[in-house]
Amino acid sequence: MRTNIIFLAIIVFISAGYTIFTLHHDRPIFANTYQQKKISTAINENVPEFEYRALSGKKGKLSDHKGKVVLIHFWATWCTPCLVEFPLIIELSKKLEKDIVVLAISSDQQAAPIKRFIKKIDTKIPSNFIIIEDSEKHITYDMFQTMRLPETYILSPNLSINEKVIGARKAWESNETIDQLRSLLHTNN
């Protein structure tokens, strides 16, 4: 009987100990399992280096813009939402000319429709807004697998993804967006 009482006491003691412990450390079972998050893509993912040829003929590479906030914007002249969004991003780049660089990568097969479109919108393209031809789609498809246009990646100054915008965003010129991009510039992310 004595052994039984000791055995019982040990069980009760362990149970009480565990209960007190878990009361302070209780967490949902899902803590380490999958939970759907409302994020569009991998944040903090480093974007690998790529080279490009601008519409002006000038060659460059992504790392040339390290230290600035980089917007990689995928678009095409045959994509209607892109045509609405494009001038808004140009205005944004004008407002933040020293802080951001926009790489506007076009999926058009030829340069002519791009030039016609630029002429049509009748605005000065700032120097930090670089229009890139990607007729072979090496950047758009092979590297980023962007199949639906428009799509924009916002990169931190260290060229890691801070945000991915799927579809057209109307609020590119809003104060919130400007603050977001400026604050990004002052972080080390």
Partner: peptide, 25 residues
């Protein structure tokens, strides 16, 4: 959606391609 596997969203190849969840990685 991240390399540590836990607490991130997961996608099928088709979701990656058709729903805009792609990225270089």
């Amino acid at each position: 959606d991240g390399s540590d596997l836990e607490n991130v969203a997961w996608h099928t190849p088709w979701e990656i391609l058709l729903d805009g969840h792609s990225s270089p990685q």
